[in-house]
Write a protein that binds this DNA or RNA. Sequence first.
DNA 1: TTGAAAGCGCTAACAG
DNA 2: CTGTTAGCGCTTTCAA
Lengths: 342, 342
Amino acid sequence: MENVSIKDIAKLSGVSVATVSRVINNNGRFSEETGKKVRDIIESTGYRTNRIAKSLRTQKTQSIGIVVPDITNFFFSNVVQKIEKHFFDIGYSTIICNTDRDPKKEKTYLKMLESKMVDGLVIISGVKKFEPTDIGISLIPIVYIDREPNDSVNSIFISSDHYQAAYTATSHLIRQGCKHPVLLLYDRASSSSEKRLSGFLDALKENHIFSSLEENIFTFPSSFDFVNLDKEDESFRNFLTKEQKIDGIFAVNDLLGVYALDVLRKEGKKVPADVKIIGFDNTPYSRFTTPKLSSIEQNIQEIATLACDSLKQLMENNYIKTEAKRLVPVKLIIRESSQTNK
Amino acid sequence: MENVSIKDIAKLSGVSVATVSRVINNNGRFSEETGKKVRDIIESTGYRTNRIAKSLRTQKTQSIGIVVPDITNFFFSNVVQKIEKHFFDIGYSTIICNTDRDPKKEKTYLKMLESKMVDGLVIISGVKKFEPTDIGISLIPIVYIDREPNDSVNSIFISSDHYQAAYTATSHLIRQGCKHPVLLLYDRASSSSEKRLSGFLDALKENHIFSSLEENIFTFPSSFDFVNLDKEDESFRNFLTKEQKIDGIFAVNDLLGVYALDVLRKEGKKVPADVKIIGFDNTPYSRFTTPKLSSIEQNIQEIATLACDSLKQLMENNYIKTEAKRLVPVKLIIRESSQTNK
DNA sequence: TTGAAAGCGCTAACAG
DNA sequence: CTGTTAGCGCTTTCAA
C-alpha cells in the first residue's frame, strides 16, 4: 500500500482534494460528517502527507539544520541532543550535519541545507574561514554557538564565557599555589580558544606571573590521536618535564587533562601535590580518575535553551529583539586534582 | 538575491527552462555555446537548485535517515559519524534522529522520514516495541544495526557479535582466576543485551560455575545518572560488597566499569588483585584510569562500512544479494584491570 | 539542439 | 460547506 496520495483519498471518500486538505490541516470549514469520512479513509489506507510536496507549496519545511564540527565530542553532542529534542517537541525535524571541522564540507552542507529549504540554522563552532553570507545564505535565520560571526544579519551568537572560564580556572590554580601554570590547547583557530587564551594570560598578568607563549602554552595538533599512543611523540612529555617549573595545568578538554595526568604519573610526579590540573567540560569520566579531575562545566542546558528560543524568535519575526549576543557563565567544579589536601 | 529559480535563469539566458535543466544536470544535449551562457548566468546570480522541487519531481531525495537512541553515546555517535561521512562523500545528506530511546519518538521520526521521502534508513538499536513495517514503512531500504528485526523485507541486520564479546570477556576473567564473575547491565530490553547475557551465562556454564540471576547480574535502571552521584542509591554498593565472593566484573560499557572501579576503591578493594574488571567500547578515557581498564572494542569502522555498502545495495537493487545478517567480531583489549600482575 | 507542456503532491484563493 | 483551479520549482517526454 504505497503511493496513496491526497487525490486517492479524495476519490475514495467522494470529495475534492481541497476538502481532504482541509480536514488534514483542520482549517477551512467542513462538516463533521465529511471530516469523519475522510479521516476514516485516511486511517484505513495508511495515507501520510508528502512533506516534500507540502514544503514546495508552502515554502516551509518545518525543519532546521544543525552544523556541528564533531558529533563525537561531549559538548557538541550534548547541545545538539538538547536542541534536537526541543525542536522535535514543537514539530520540527532536525538535519544534523557533521563537518569534521572541514570548511569545505561545511560549505557544501550549508548550501545543501539552504536548497533543502530549512527554516532555520544552528551553526556550532568550527573554523571560521568564511561566513554563510559569503556563499549567498543571507535570509535564513542563524544561531551561532561558540563562533562569533563578523556579519550578523538575521543571526545571533551564543557562547559559554570562555574568557571567564580560563580566567577562573587559572586564578584558582594560582590561588592554590601554582607559580607556573600552563595552558593546553589545540591548534585550531576558533573564537573560543582565542578567548580562553586571553583569559589565561590575563589571570597570569594580574598575578604578576611572567608568561611566554613558548613556556606557558602547549599546542596539540588537531589530529592528535589518543588512541595510538604507541607512536606518541615526545614533545608533550618534554614540555611537561623539561620545564621543571610547571606546577599547574589548564586543559581545554578533560581528555587532555586526563592524558596529562597519565603522563605525569609515568614521570613520577604527584597530582595535585606537584602539579595541579583542571580540565574542561566536566565529562562523566572525569569524576572517576585518580585523583578526581577538577573541571570547568559549561551550562549546556542554558545554551541549548537560549539557542532554541533565539532561533524561534528569528524564524517568527525575522529579527531579534534582544541583544544579538549572549554569554553564558561557566562553573568551576573543584575536585582532587587541583587542590592540595583538603 | 533570492528566490532565483530555474525560470529566471531561463529568461536571463534566453533559453527555455528545459534547456537550463539540461545543462544543470548535464544530460540531454545542448550546444557548447548555450551551455556556457547558462552556466555564466547561474554563476552570476548565485542560483542553486531547489532540491525540494527536484525531489518532488524525481521521487528521490538523495538523503538517508539515521535513527539513533542516544547521540551522546560513544559507540552510536562514532558509527553515525562514519556513516554520515560515507554518504556525504557520495552526495547524500543525512538526517540524524535522536530518539532518546523513546519508542513513541522513534515512531514519529520514522513516519516523518518516510514522508520526507528519504531514500534509505539506518536504524540503530533502540527498544524494539514495534517494527517499521507495523506503521506502514515497508518499501524503504533499511539497515538495522544492533537490532534484529522480526520481519526483514528489504532490510539487513548488522551487529557486533555481542555473544562472542560477553563470552570472551567472561572466559578471560575466569582464566585470570575469577570464581564469581558478575555482569553489569542496564534494564533495557535490547537484542544486544540478550546476546551478552547468554554469552556471559554460557561462559560460566562451560566452566562449571554455578550462576543465578540474582547473584551474578546487576541491572542498572536506564535512567541511572552518573552525574548526580550524591543521591547514589546503595543497592549497587551492597551488591558488590555483600556478595563477598564477587571477584570479576564485565560491564556493558566503560562508564559502568569505571564506576565500579570507583566504588570498589572506596570499599578498600584492590583492582585487579581482589576484583578484575572488563568494560565495553574501549572509550578513550578507559586508557587513563587507575588501573587502566580492560575493555571490549567494537569494530566501528567495519560496522559502518558494512552498513553503508548494504544500504547502497538495497537502494540500488531493492534487495540484498548477500546474507541478510552480518555479525562483526569484537576484540578484547587487555589492560591492567583484568589481569594479576603482569 | 531546443521548446512546449504535463505533472510530481500539495495548499490556497476564489467561486459557488 | 465544498469544488475548481493555479502554481510551488523542477524534470522529462514528445515534437519540432
